[in-house]
Amino acid sequence: MIVADKKPIEEIVEEIKDHERILILGCNECVTVCEAGGKKEVEILASALRMYFLNQGREKNIEELTLERQCDSEYVEEIRGVSDQYDALVSLACGVGVQFTAEHYPGLPIYPGVNTCFLGATEHRGLWTERCQACGQCILARTGGICPVSRCAKRIMNGPCGGSSNGKCEINPDLACAWQLIVDRLDSLGRLEEYETLSPVKDWSADRAGGPRKVEREDVQS
């Protein structure tokens, strides 16, 4: 899923301070799972903002709504009928949702309420870690199912580098060395000899280096 983290409330206050009628718009997908932008977080943020402005002696009209998704027109259109009641919108969706909603409502200022961080997994409640960088050309078949692009600090294709120590990365003793994990996994799969193969230079044109990307599937287009 896409993992996001809440923005500090001071930053959101700064974004919306000149607006009077504000909709806090959550998303029921990834940001709900990582507890950054679902219904619950919309409620908490809306209450905190109301309280903040009341303490400043400025009563603002702050309302709450959470959509099923903000990356699909079908759901983003659900606020069509009420959009003119607001002079600003704070989206707690990922960067995709913020932009997609903005594209649908050209006259309505929209502000991000979260920082979109990475594609990751829930290790346990309150801990999400990165697993994928969406490089557009998956190499997991060659690396024992562990990704050096997203999990090695230097994105080394032929690791480990000299900074691997006791299974940890040189940049942070809490961070596993991706290449230690790869070697261990190849070992447990009985495929250690694959480590000897030189991994070729990666084609980064499928990554962001090739410019904004799209996936186009004629077979599913109607």
């Binding site: 994105r155 080394i156 294709m157 032929n158 690791g159 580098c161 030189l198 991994s199 070729p200």
Partner: peptide, 14 residues
């Protein structure tokens, strides 16, 4: 921003 376009082994080969 660290570049790391290629790694040291790929640099040798290059």
């Amino acid at each position: 921003k660290g570049v790391f376009d290629i790694d040291s082994i790929q640099l040798l080969a290059m």
